[in-house]
Amino acid sequence: MSPVNTRARTLTKYPGTNNSTSLPTQGVVGVVRLGAVGEAVLNIVAANLQEILRLPVDILPPRQSPEFAYNERRKQYHAALILKNLAESLRPHPRILGLVSVDLFIPVLTHVFGEAQMGGRAAVVSLHRLKQKEEGSRVSLDTFYERVVKVALHEVAHTFDLVHCNQAECIMRISSGPSDLDELPLFFCEYCEAFLAEAYRRYDIQSLPL
């Protein structure tokens, strides 16, 4: 595994997580794919969450696409319904992250890249809008993986009560589009790092040693 807690962090492409097939579920974060989501992106997200959040991550058995959340009028999937379902149906991980390939929305917004329960258990990331540039052409696989990891980190951090950050160099900075997402670093600023550590203590969560 590459060195942890470095500012010049790059994407970890080699999973070092607890795979459900080899280890029992003992991690803090359970990552689950819902529907047509590739195994590679799942592994990369899990590995990077484990490394950057310093939390043990488990990969959970795949689930079906969340058709229950489909909204006929919007032709999109209601993110809040997926979060509710993840939080209620998957135990015992303190935090659950779902990966979906469908387009997500919340009632007040046209779309979201991801959504999370503030201080809750569940977060979800949609790969749907992360594969393309604004003008429609596809981005490289590396850029795609990096975007997914950034949204995943950002959303899971919300479940630890972290709010959007004004620091330019922070994963919690609000991004106003996919290309803006590319500008974000793959780490938390020192303030958000401190808030995260404080949240682990508050939620009685043991982080991995540095």
């Binding site: 809040a80 919340i106 009632p107 007040v108 999370a116 503030m118 919300h158 709010v163 959007h164 609000i174």
Partner: peptide, 17 residues
């Protein structure tokens, strides 16, 4: 007057602190 809009905007704004 729409609860879903209130809740969803409330949630989004909360995330910004």
């Amino acid at each position: 007057d729409e609860m879903v809009i209130r809740e969803s905007l409330h949630g989004w704004l909360k995330k910004s602190g």
